[in-house]
Design a protein around this nucleic acid. Structure first.
Lengths: 199, 199
DNA sequence: CGCAGGTTGGCAGTGACTGTCAGGATGACG
DNA sequence: CGTCATCCTGACAGTCACTGCCAACCTGCG
């Protein structure tokens, strides 16, 4: 819930930048919720936010980015959380900690639910989301591989398998959370998914 | 390697249909391999295959479909293989059997490698592929859930977690297979991934 | 031969996205 | 306070995937 960066905007530019960004995001989320993702055109969002289409694309490179936000923030939170763990923490514990940290980035429970709802209601969006997760996989790879103690030749493959499994479970858990209208905790569902996968 | 349907084309229409489909596919795969997926335009493929762009889209609904082929065939092979299993086969064995059957659908080892290479070289394609896998998940759900014996309230969540894990492992395995230039068997890599995930 | 039904190609249009460029607002400096 | 470099913005044209529509066409069948 608490997002880490409270960067005080010094210049007027930064301030209006932030303002525009926020207004675009709000308009987008509202329209997506009202009429669905596909039925909402970028032109419409830009008009509602009071900016030109070109400017919208300067802030958010693609229409998908209007939902996902900045992926780098997630990567940073995830890797930072894992880095702080003691060296003897196992790979599964590390993954769980990183995912928990990434989930904390949502501004509010309500906004998280709103986002996930649109996400799981639109197949193409979900695909884009999965693609973004692949970048997390790459970044997490060295952090997880170093916590394995088996044969070093298989370390890369094993680490990849574990990471992929963890994020697959996260996906299932988030979807289940949406299906239950945000009742309960995603992390609890995640734990149950992982334990089921490792049975 | 052996694809099940040897439907003898009765009418001339069916025959030319099949021919056109094959030529389009060949041109697409060749161009994708030569210049990459994104750099290849649909207009170029249509021109090389000697059909209009409009016709190409009638055969393959989207540019992505030129690589993935008909997803229903995979679903059918997967579910059929699982259905033939005895009732006391566990969920993991069922998933492995289904995935093995789906992998058998590739015409040749070489074409499979060619396809996977393009797939893993293009992020957006990989995303679409993952999205198609989600349809497999849905179809496989009842077949797997029925093989669980734990608390029935959690059966849905557990089954989803297992399915998602299996396909995540398949993805990792296929990528590893491409990275090794098609050396070895995907299924072996898959087994190693699953055993790593369940450690 | 002629007809019904499926097939094809062209054409215009939509929507996401990009390059470019002139013009306006802003900040730094004298 | 004036000047100039810097950044930001909107507008326009263009590309590419994809769709609806329609006229022309071919095939199979009576």
């Amino acid at each position: 819930m608490t997002n880490g960066e409270a960067t005080a905007p010094r210049t007027l530019w930064d301030r209006s930048r932030q303002l525009a960004s926020r207004e675009i995001l709000e308009a987008a989320l509202r329209l997506f919720g009202e009429q669905g993702y596909e039925a909402t055109t970028v032109a419409q969002i830009a008009h509602e936010a009071g900016v030109s289409q070109r400017t919208l694309f300067r802030y958010f490179g693609t229409k998908e980015d209007l939902l996902g936000g900045d992926p780098d923030r997630f990567v940073r939170a995830l890797t930072a959380a894992i880095d702080e763990l003691p060296a003897d923490a196992g790979p599964w514990e590390a993954l769980r900690t990183g995912i928990a940290a990434a989930l904390e980035l949502h501004e509010s429970r309500h906004q998280a639910l709103q986002r996930f709802r649109v996400l799981y209601a639109t197949p193409s969006l979900r695909a884009g989301w999965l693609e973004k997760q692949l970048r997390f996989h790459e970044r997490a790879l060295p952090l997880i591989a170093s916590r394995l103690h088996g044969s070093p030749g298989d370390a890369d493959l094993m680490a990849r398998a574990m990471i992929a499994t963890a994020f697959a479970c996260l996906d299932v858990a988030a979807k289940a959370w949406v299906d239950r209208n945000g009742k309960g905790e995603i992390l609890d569902l995640y734990d149950r998914c992982v334990s089921a996968a490792r049975t």
